[in-house]
Design a protein around this nucleic acid. Structure first.
Lengths: 211, 211
DNA sequence: AAGCTACCTGACCAATTGGTCAAGAACTTT
DNA sequence: AAAGTTCTTGACCAATTGGTCAGGTAGCTT
């Protein structure tokens, strides 16, 4: 019934073309939102006819889902920085660095993710309810351990995590605002560095975890 | 040529109907984004035929612009909390309270605003480039004064403001995520209180401005 | 060179979109 | 009660949308 053109052994051509389309889609979804994005525009940005996009991704929703889960995986990976550490200053410091690098390197993906969650996560509820809940629980426990060991002040781990997420995402999601307030120019590398150290300074001192 | 049905002395009926439509529009724009929102859905939520919505707001963009500027004005008003204060703990503390109240009371509007900025502020560039730039400059000066008076640590005022905006907005914009991580329930009043005091505690200590 | 599979795409379609309009209903003002 | 204004809305339209499909090409395997 369904032709289902997905080959058994992923062809290199398919992989490459999917990559190009996903990159274009990420940009268009980020700039226009899910509802505002059109398959035609994605096709144009990817430099191919619309039917070709539909050859690789049958529906708009499938394409969108791939874009979202790609960035979500990157997002979760930043947790590695968290895990190896033996004290809050090291762990949270590294986590801030990692998340800021994500905001800098994947601004489109960050926006797509933010947009998705903001609109009630209609497409990736399952991700949120399983992976994220688990991830948060683990990390909150790490923080609680630090508190119990007297390595930092007794602060609600959950609200600390929200502060970290919000602040680091801000530089991607509200990048346009940040840019406007920077005289119309994107932050340069020095300014990114300044942002990172400002955040780390406030947060680490704020939770009583200075080195 | 254009009928232009706007009466010279704003009728009370018009005011009331505009209010109802604006409220419905705010919700729909927040949940679906500008591109995903439809005039038909807004009309349905407002409980009136689509043509009636078009009677009060000629175009989708005009309606949207009104929704966005309404929330932006509320957002800027929170600055009052900032201004009256004589030291950072009081000023920034009050500002955090005010912005958290906005997140709690106007979650739809906050999302619309966030969405607009995230997509490059195509509709309200002018607002951003004039009002916001000015507002930020003023507030940054207030913070700089506090620093110069030795009332707080020497921290980049700009990045501190970003941290405040991001964190307080988070509870509205990412309300769905917060709710999911709260077992599927919205924060109750005690939890909002806990959020506020956690943020204040971290930030005020973090900038060296404890009372 | 024949056969198979993956890839490609112009033309097309049903559904939905923002927006219009004309004809009338409901108020105010005179 | 007539005249003028504001409000209301079903029916309609041109444009755009996501998605389909048939007929073709390119490249590997035998």
């Amino acid at each position: 019934m369904s032709p289902d053109p997905i080959p058994l052994r992923p062809n290199s051509k398919r992989q490459e073309n999917e990559r190009i389309i996903l990159k274009a889609a990420e940009k268009v979804f980020a700039e226009a939102g899910y509802g505002g994005a059109t398959m035609q525009l994605i096709a144009d940005v990817a430099g191919r006819p619309k039917a070709n996009v539909h050859y690789y991704f049958q529906t708009k929703e499938q394409l969108y889902r791939r874009v979202v889960s790609n960035i979500f995986d990157i997002w979760l990976q930043a947790a590695d920085a968290f895990d190896g550490a033996k004290n809050p200053a090291e762990g949270i410091g590294a986590y801030i660095d990692a998340k800021m690098e994500i905001s800098r390197k994947y601004p489109h993906g960050s926006k797509v993710w933010a947009s998705e969650v903001m609109h009630g996560a209609p497409i990736i509820q399952d991700y949120l309810e399983i992976k994220l809940v688990e991830w948060t629980k683990d990390r909150a426990e790490v923080i609680q351990n630090w508190i119990d060991q007297g390595l930092m002040d007794p602060i609600s781990p959950r609200h600390l995590l929200y502060l970290l997420w919000a602040t680091t995402q801000h530089y991607a999601d509200f990048g346009h605002q940040v840019e406007t307030l920077n005289g119309g120019f994107p932050l340069d590398l020095d300014q990114w560095q300044e942002a990172k150290s400002s955040i780390k300074r406030i947060v680490l001192k704020g939770i009583g975890a200075e080195e």
